[in-house]
Simulated scan of single mutants.
Amino acid sequence: MNTTKVMLAHSLLLFVLDYADASYLRLTEDQLNKLERLQNLAIRFMFGLRKYDHVSEFLQKLKWFPVRRRRDLHVLSFLYCVLFNPKTPPYLKEKFNVVGTASDLRSSRMLTLSMQFHKTKFYKLSFAVQAIELWNVLPTNIRQAKSLNMFKNTVKALSLALAFILRNKTTGFYFFSIYSLI
């Protein structure tokens, strides 16, 4: 692996893939597949792979996630900031309510967020609904992280562990989902 190529990919490609990805939750599968192909192309460039070589093991070596999971991690990080940063604007904080506001309720200690009722697919794809769904499937100890860095590190560690388990379970096919094992 050429470190110069890795630095180029980090500075030129990941910046573009990550820029405001948490706000683009309504991308179609076709658009997400194009972004995924772009990421795979960069991995092939970095490792000198041919066009049809699989990149799954190289994603794991780089500790990168597929585009969809990268976006999920960024959504969760942004939600953590909204919930626990005292400087968060009120119009953002009011979108997220912890179930059971009394301090003695178990659900309030678990930091489970309540979901607003919604009928339309348009609203289901909104940031608030997607973020709450991702948040509520996380283990309680991760939701109760003391800092943003601790939160990010534990979510990434869990995601990498689950990706490794699922990749081995499916005999080489790279499949990953936070929701499938929790």
Score class of each variant (00 low, 15 high):
Glu133Leu: 15
Ala131His: 03
Lys156Met: 13
Glu133Asp: 09
Ala42Tyr: 00
Asp53Gly: 00
Gly48Leu: 03
Met1Trp: 03
Glu57Pro: 01
Tyr174Cys: 11
Thr140Val: 15
Ser103Arg: 12
Gln60Val: 14
Lys63Met: 11
Phe84Ser: 05
Phe151Trp: 06
Tyr52Thr: 10
Gln116Pro: 00
Lys61His: 06
Ala42Cys: 14
Val98Ala: 04
Arg71Glu: 01
Trp64Pro: 12
Glu133Val: 14
Thr171Asn: 13
Ser114Ala: 10
Thr112Glu: 10
Gly172Cys: 03
Gly100Leu: 01
Ala42Arg: 05
Phe173Lys: 10
Arg109Met: 04
Ile165Ala: 11
Tyr24Leu: 12
Leu92Asp: 05
Val75Trp: 02
Asp53Glu: 10
Ala102Lys: 10
Tyr80Ile: 01
Leu160Pro: 07
Ser159Gln: 00
Leu162Cys: 09
Lys169Tyr: 13
Val155Gln: 00
Tyr179Thr: 13
Asn33Ser: 15
Gln130Lys: 11
Ala128Val: 12
Tyr80Phe: 13
Lys119Phe: 05
Arg106Ile: 12
Val98Asn: 00
Pro89Met: 07
Arg106Val: 09
Val6Phe: 01
Ile182Pro: 09
Val155Met: 09
Tyr179Arg: 08
Tyr174Ile: 04
Gln130His: 06
Ser126Phe: 00
Ser11Thr: 13
Leu160Lys: 07
Trp64Arg: 06
Thr101Val: 09
Leu32Asp: 05
Asn97Met: 13
Ile165His: 06
Pro89Gln: 08
Ala145His: 02
Val67Asp: 01
Phe78Asn: 13
Arg167Asn: 09
Ile182Thr: 11
Asn85Phe: 04
Leu79Gly: 00
Leu27Gly: 03
Thr170Ile: 05
Lys95Tyr: 00
Asn168Leu: 08
Ser103Val: 06
Val55Phe: 04
Arg68Ile: 09
Glu36His: 11
Gln144Leu: 13
Asn168Thr: 12
Lys146Tyr: 04
Phe175Glu: 10
Asn97Pro: 00
Gln39Cys: 00
Leu166Met: 15
Gln39Pro: 03
Asn153Leu: 08
Val75Ala: 01
Gly100Met: 04
Leu79Lys: 03
Leu17Arg: 04
Phe58Leu: 07
Gln31Asp: 05
Val82Lys: 01
Ala131Ile: 09
Leu62Cys: 07
Leu92Pro: 00
Asp104Asn: 11
Leu162Asp: 13
Asn40Glu: 14
Ala157Asp: 13
Asn2Gln: 07
Thr120Val: 03
Thr28Asp: 02
Asn40Arg: 09
Glu29Leu: 14
His54Cys: 07
Met110Asp: 11
Gly172Leu: 04
Leu148Lys: 14
Leu62Phe: 05
Leu181Lys: 08
Pro86Asn: 09
Asn168Gly: 10
Asn33Ile: 02
Asn97Lys: 14
Ala161Tyr: 06
Lys156Ser: 11
Tyr174His: 10
Pro66Glu: 01
